[in-house]
Amino acid sequence: MNTAKKNEFLYFALKNWKLRIGFVVIGVFLILALIGPLLVRNDPFAYANPTGAKPPSSDYWFGTTFFGQDVFAQFVLGLRATFLVGILGGGLATLIGVVVGFTAGYRGGIVDEVLNMLTNIILVIPTMAVLLIIAAYLEVRSIFAECIFIGLTAWPWAARAIRAQTFSLRTRDFVDLAKTSGMSSFKIIFREIAPNMMAYLIMTFILQFGGAILNAATLDFIGLGPTNTISLGMMMQYAVMWGALLLGMWWWFIPPGLAITLIVGALYVMNVGMDEVFNPKLRET
């Protein structure tokens, strides 16, 4: 029964064009991020082209910046940073959301009251404002620190949603049965409740992934990005700062933003596709 059900999901997942598009787009960018730096002949920070800014050519696939830096080399390195922020930042936010949501939803009572209050408070505070003020006071900023701060501030909506789901599951018969059989709370949550909302948890992660990428881009663009590497948001910041707009150097600012749009858009579309696969009511016929 269990394997048959898994195959059914797999069947609908492969048939779903939204999931397929999403996977292909993410896959292409992921491969580019992984092998891209190996294809690059120039150091992303070196002033490779002595003539300064040049449009894309066979030597410099995405052209060169105002200072003659290879845009493609920066782009693939920035892609790595983007995926890292998505996976680590989004992953951490999901993890905290899961822990808080499960605890609040399953325990109920005073624990729930306190955690729910905390969630609601942090939900109201604009994430970006907190990230800004933390980053502004850090002199050396690493990409890992950025991931951690993004993860620490992005979890509330996930916690709230997971709490609501747990609430509706914890009064079901199979949970009562597990309780009467003397299972520990921890086991009940991970063996009985979590598997029943696996799809929901995956979708939460996908949305957190996209959100972390957008947050990092905003932070980097305002000049508070990591100090030891380059990211897509920082590429856009430099482009605007050095007048790429006025000089018409479109190859400098189009690729990074377009890549973020496509990656996050693909994630959103995958999220919808996932919903359709796991929720038979929404399936297209």
Partner: peptide, 8 residues
Amino acid sequence: SATPYMWL
């Protein structure tokens, strides 16, 4: 909705 504000 996936477009970063600054890029648009």
